[in-house]
Amino acid sequence: MTEIFGVPTQALFGQLLIGLINGAFYAMLSLGLAVIFGLLNIINFTHGAQYMMGAFCAWFLLQYLGVGYWWALLIAPLAVGAIGVAIERTMLARLYKLDHLYGLLLTFGLALIIQGVFTNYFGSSGLPYQLPQEFAGAYNLSFMFLPKYRAWVIAVSLVVCLGTWYVIERTKLGSYLRAATENAALVQAFGINVPRMITLTYGFGVGLAAFAGVMAAPIYQVNPQMGANLIIVVFAVVVIGGMGSILGSIITGFGLGVIEGLTKVFYPEASNTVIFIIMAIVLLIKPSGLFGRAR
C-alpha cells in the first residue's frame, strides 16, 4: 500500500472525501446564511433547524407517502421555504426597525422550539433514510473508491452554489437584490417591491437549508439534533469567509471541510476544534474575514 507522509493513501483520500462532503454542506448552509444576511441583516439562527426539517420532510415523504428521494429534493425545500416565508411575514418583519440582534434572538428561540418539538416525537437517536437505488455502488478511481452518492452530493452542491452566485451576481434579479442590500429605500423608490423581495429571499435561503437537509438525509441519519451543532460550525465558517461575499462563502465552506478532513488524518484530537482555531487566527489577521469588506 502506498503512503503519503506516513499515512495510507486510502485513509487520506477517504478523509479528503469526507471533508469535501462536509465542506459541501458548510458551503450550502453558509451561502444561505450569507444571502439572508445580505438583505435582511439578520443572522438566521433557525438555519440549522430548517436544515433538519428538510431532512425530516424527506423522511416523512418516504415513510408515510412512499414519495422518493427525487420528489423530496423538490418538495422539501418548497415546504420548508413556505414555512420560512410565514415566519418572515408574521415575526421577522416586525423587527426590521429594531436592533439587528433581536432577529438573532428571535430565530434562536424558534430553533429551540423546532428542535424541542422534533426531539419530543422522534427522540435523539437517528432515523435511517434509505439510499435511492440509483446511487448504489461506487466508482473505481484506481486510487480509491468513490461512492456514487458522495460524488452526486459534491457535484450538486457545486451546481447549486455556483447557480446562486450566478443569479445574484450576473442577472437582473440579482442586481435588484444587490442594490436593495446597499440601499433598500432607494430601490423601493424605483418601484421595486422590496418587502416582497425580502420575504422571498428569506424563503430562498431557508429552502436552500432544507435542500441541504434532503441531501444529507442518506449520508447522516435523520436526527432532530443534526442541525444544532452544525450551525455553530457554519457560523465560524461565515466569520472566516466574511459576510457579504457569495463566492467567498462557497470557497471557505469547501476549503474548511477539506482542512477539517485532513486534520482528522494527521491530528485527530483537533478535528473538532480546527475550524474555530482557524477562525481565531483569521480574526487576528483580518477581522472582517478573508473575503469580507471592512464595515
Binding site: N41, I43, L104, I232, V238, V239, T273, A280, L283
Partner: peptide, 27 residues
Amino acid sequence: LAIRSQGIYFAMITLALAQMVYFFCLQ
C-alpha cells in the same frame, strides 16, 4: 479576539469561541 467586531459578528464569534472551549472540555 472578539472585541474588535460588533453586533451580530460579536455574537457569532463569541458563540464559536465558546464551542471551541466546549470541545476542549469534552476532550
